[in-house]
Every structure is written in C-alpha cells, then in structure tokens.
C-alpha cells in the first residue's frame, strides 16, 4: 500500500483544447474545407492544441506546492483541472478532499452589487449555504478591512480592493486545499503580509497550498516542493530549489537563443 498521503494524484493526464473554439453555423456547413492528404497535418494542428501532458504527479497532503512556467505553459489549465472545473481528455486526476481556488481575479463578483451582496453571492457560488454565509460575513468584513466600502457597489472599487475582497472570501471557506494563481501581488504590502500569515497558519494546520507563479523568488520563499512546466510538459518535479534551478536554466537558454 502507498504510505504517503497524497491529496492530488495524477497519472497520464492529457488536456487538449480545440483551438478553433467556437465556429458559426455558416462555417460549419458552407466553409468546410475537405481534409486532404496534403493539409492533414495543418488541419489537425489547427483543431487541437495539447495544453497539458503529465505522466505522473502527486501532491502530498500538507505540502506547499509551487507551479512555475512561462505564459501558456499550462499552469492555469493544471489549476483548473485540480479544481475540477475542467475535465481531462485522457488519464485521470484524483483530488482527495475539498479544494478552493482563485483562478481569475474577481470571477464570481458582479460590478453592480455591493461588497456585502457580492460576498454572499460568491460564498453561495462556492457551495456555502446562506445561513453559514451569514455567519461568515462579519469575519470576512473584518479581514478585508474595506470598512464602509462594503456597502457601495463593486464598480467603485479599485482592482486591489476587488482582490482583497475575493481573497478574504476564499480564506473563510472551509477547505483542505487552497489554489492560488499569482494574484496576491496586486494587493498592497500590508495585505500581502496578512495573506502570507493566513497561508502559514493554514499550512501549519495541515492544509495544502498550491501556488502558481512566474516569480522564482516568491516560490522559493513560499513552497517546499514544486513543478516546472514547459509547453504542457513537466520539466522538473521535486524539491522547490531544483525546480527553480531548472526554470532559471531554461530561461537563460531562451535568452541566449534569442540573442544569437
């Protein structure tokens, strides 16, 4: 029996995006070009893009796991798969516990609603009952330190305030795993410290943190293990310093290739 307690188990995971995405009915019936021997490669490439292809990956319960990679390397896709909002095309991903995450800034909020109303709605979207949400509201209001702004519509908020609110809500949702996508950088310094404190407390209480970033130094500070993604494939998995090293080497190589 496997002795380590994994919160995420991944094997042979493949996620493919159809790149033509949405077409129109007209295109579907009229502009259909036949796929011939000559353009079959182009066609296939046009239709599908492998966003993620991971052989095996386990995240140990209670660890602080960092995901590093360039733009478009599959970080957000992996996070979405971990949250369960995307389904894999092949292979499987298993999450043994509750997870909560922030993928896009302010998704779940509506600009016309007040801060309080948005908190209630967002908690409900995250699966919290109305009575539980009412009980959580006061401590969320205290945590985000937005004060009187909580009763004015969200469209009057700065983007930093929106992030504050979103993060404060997420912190109060009972969960086993917390997934964050490099949004913390938007908040001001004092709030960042507060978030770090929260994460430290969450982690020492046995919670798992998955943190996605492009900044190696943040990850070195925050994480113990990690993964470096490159074009959807794992370049390095293991202790965070090894992962960061691989990432920096790859970056240097790209820089060198670009200059020659």
């Amino acid at each position: 029996m496997d002795m380590t307690d994994n919160i995420i188990e991944i094997s042979d995971l493949v996620k493919i995006y159809p790149t033509f995405n949405r077409s129109s009915i007209k295109d579907f019936f009229i502009n259909r070009q036949p796929v011939t021997g000559e353009n079959v490669e182009d066609k296939l490439q046009f239709y599908r893009k492998v966003a993620l292809d991971l052989h095996s990956l386990n995240v140990v319960r209670g660890s602080k796991f960092g995901i590093l990679g360039h733009n478009g390397s599959g970080k957000s896709t992996l996070l979405s798969l971990m949250l369960g909002i995307l389904k894999p095309d092949h292979g499987f991903i298993k999450v043994n516990g509750r997870s909560v995450g922030l993928l896009e800034m302010g998704s779940g909020f509506h600009p016309e609603l007040s801060g309080n109303e948005n908190v209630m709605l967002y908690l409900s979207i995250l699966g919290i009952s109305i009575s539980d949400a009412r009980a959580l509201l006061p401590s969320i209001v205290t945590f985000c330190e937005l004060g009187k702004a909580m009763s004015s519509p969200l469209r009057t908020y700065s983007s930093g305030m929106v992030i504050r609110l979103a993060f404060s809500v997420l912190c109060h949702v009972p969960t086993d795993m917390f997934l964050v996508d490099e949004v913390l950088a938007v908040g001001d310094y004092s709030f960042q410290v507060k978030c770090m404190d929260f994460m430290a407390k969450f982690s020492s209480g046995g919670g798992t943190i998955v943190f996605v970033s492009q900044d190696p130094s943040t990850l070195l500070n925050m994480c113990d293990t990690g993964l470096c993604l490159h074009e959807g494939k794992a370049k390095a998995v293991g202790p965070i310093y090894e992962v960061v090293e691989t990432y920096i080497e790859a970056m240097e190589k790209i820089k060198k290739d670009a200059s020659t």
């Binding site: 949250l83 369960g84 909002i85 896009e104 998704s107 779940g108 979207i125 995250l126």
Partner: peptide, 9 residues
Amino acid sequence: YQAVLKSRV
C-alpha cells in the same frame, strides 16, 4: 453565469 462553473465542480 460562467462564474458558477469557474469556481467549483
């Protein structure tokens, strides 16, 4: 209503 699908299973 995309926020609902993007936040949770």
